[in-house]
Computed example of a mutant assay.
Amino acid sequence: MSEPTGTPSPHRPGRDHTRGFKGQPVVHCTDCSWSQALDEDLHEDWEDVLLAWHAEHPDDAVDHLAPGPPSGPLAIPAYVRWAEQYGRAVVGDDRTRAVVLFNHECLAILHSVIADGDLDGAITANARRLGTSPAKARPDIILIATNLYRKGLLCPAANRQ
């Protein structure tokens, strides 16, 4: 029997046992394109809470594990809270209520994404902090930003919830 017209079908997110991301477990929704890696500090102990959050917020359907690096302008999802503490980023995920301290590079990425939706400011800031060239700082910033994106802590600017 099919769902009545106009009634949204429920979302059934769960762990994806067929794949992982850099040794981290992955969750996804079989009813939409939502997927992400679980951060060991922000999500793993609260996996059920994260899955329930998605079931209650099905409009958040970003595939954080799509092949290739994230492209286009980035944003910080509305469920991510962050602050600066001693030059590092304190990041909280409202979906699980967990909070973790991230490094200088993450802080530079968050500032850069807020300012311009890109990573140029983070690359410049990290190059300055390390006393190196932007070309040498770029790969690390892109790698760290991609990891934040895969964990659902960054999203495409068009999908900012």
Rank of each mutant, 00 (worst) to 15 (best):
Met1Lys: 02
Glu3Asp: 14
Thr5Tyr: 13
Gly6Leu: 04
Thr7Glu: 12
Pro8Asp: 15
His11Gln: 08
Arg12Ala: 03
Pro13Asn: 07
Arg15Val: 13
Arg15Glu: 13
Asp16Asn: 13
His17Lys: 03
His17Gln: 09
Arg19His: 09
Arg19Gln: 08
Val26Lys: 01
Val27Thr: 10
His28Asn: 05
Cys29Glu: 03
Cys29Tyr: 08
Gln36Pro: 06
Ala37Ile: 12
Asp39Trp: 07
Glu40Ser: 14
Leu42Arg: 11
His43Met: 04
Glu44Ile: 13
Asp45Ile: 01
Trp46Met: 10
Trp46Asp: 11
Glu47Trp: 10
Leu50Lys: 07
Ala52Ile: 00
Ala52Cys: 02
Trp53Leu: 01
His54Val: 12
Ala55Glu: 00
His57Val: 02
Pro58Met: 08
Pro58Ile: 15
Asp59Tyr: 11
Asp60Cys: 14
Asp60Gln: 08
Ala61His: 13
Asp63Ser: 10
Asp63Trp: 00
His64Ala: 10
Leu65Ser: 11
Pro70Gly: 10
Leu74Gly: 15
Ala75Cys: 08
Ile76Trp: 04
Pro77Thr: 07
Ala78Phe: 12
Ala78Tyr: 11
Ala78Cys: 04
Tyr79Asn: 02
Tyr79Val: 00
Val80Gln: 01
Arg81Cys: 03
Gln85Thr: 15
Gln85Glu: 14
Tyr86Lys: 10
Gly87Val: 15
Arg88Asp: 03
Arg88Phe: 15
Ala89Phe: 01
Val91Thr: 03
Gly92Ser: 06
Asp93Ser: 11
Ala98Tyr: 05
Val99Phe: 00
Val100Leu: 06
Leu101Gln: 05
Leu101Trp: 12
Leu101Ile: 05
Leu107Gln: 00
Ala108Asp: 15
Ile109Val: 06
Leu110Pro: 01
His111Tyr: 13
His111Gly: 05
Ala115Lys: 14
Gly117Met: 03
Asp118Met: 04
Leu119Lys: 02
Leu119Trp: 09
Asp120Gln: 02
Gly121Ile: 03
Gly121Asn: 14
Gly121Glu: 01
Ala122Phe: 00
Ile123Asp: 09
Thr124Pro: 01
Asn126Ile: 05
Arg128Ser: 14
Arg128Pro: 05
Arg128Ala: 10
Leu130Trp: 12
Gly131Ala: 08
Gly131Arg: 06
Thr132Asp: 12
Ser133Leu: 07
Ser133Tyr: 02
Pro134Phe: 02
Ala135Phe: 03
Lys136Tyr: 05
Lys136Leu: 10
Ala137Met: 05
Asp140His: 08
Ile141His: 02
Ile142Asn: 07
Leu143Tyr: 09
Ile144Tyr: 03
Ala145Cys: 06
Ala145Ser: 11
Thr146Gln: 02
Asn147His: 14
Tyr149Thr: 11
Tyr149Trp: 03
Arg150Asn: 12
Arg150Met: 12
Lys151Ile: 00
Lys151Phe: 01
Leu153Thr: 02
Leu154Lys: 11
Leu154Met: 10
Pro156Trp: 00
Pro156His: 06
Asn159Arg: 09
Gln161Gly: 08
Gln161Ser: 08
Gln161Thr: 00
